[in-house]
Design a protein around this nucleic acid. Sequence first.
DNA 1: TGGTCGATCAGCT
DNA 2: GCTGATCGACCAA
Length: 199
Amino acid sequence: MRKLEREFYCQSSIRLAQELLGKILVHNGNGDKISGRIVEVEAYMGMEDKAAHSYAGKRTKRTEVMYGIPGILYVFSIYGMYSCVNVVAGEVEIPQAVLIRAIEPIDGLNQMALNRYKKIYEFLSKKERVNLANGPGKLCIAMGIDKSANGADLCGDVFFLEDDDCSPEIVSSKRIGIDYAEEAVDFPWRFQSKSYSPR
DNA sequence: TGGTCGATCAGCT
DNA sequence: GCTGATCGACCAA
């Protein structure tokens, strides 16, 4: 089990996306360790990608962190009530990021259950357990990630990634919820661990 | 098993 | 004003 260093994040988001599968995302919150294995991601290629918030170099208060150091988090809110987390990729001034779409919970099951359903893990129904963190909005709630985590550094102690040499087979498909993105809607930049099995 | 729809607000025009 | 890198509830078949 080894903590990933800055160097790991300094590659294009398409490559980083695939490297992220199987890694363990850790959040050390209020003394509680919450972690889960990354099983689904999407790559956003920045400047050249019509689906990306940073398409054509768009630079606003919201997208600013994507221009920063690879390995920090880009958290944005959507539909009024949800947050989504990305890992910033590429290099400084190259606004690429990888959206984390799903994790399989490992540590802090009770905390995640409380965050999502206000009850301990033992009392969750089968469906609630499946739905604990299997979507970008859901995993943010489960792991206690909100806008305050925007810009947080994965090379710090609160948020980081661990590598336990799990290297899953990868399945790729089209990205979700980006129908406005013209030709980019068909790019196969969504990646899942095969064992997690896409629908 | 699949389609529709409401919640709810930051960011953009 | 309008829209969205979402979720869950509800309804039909």
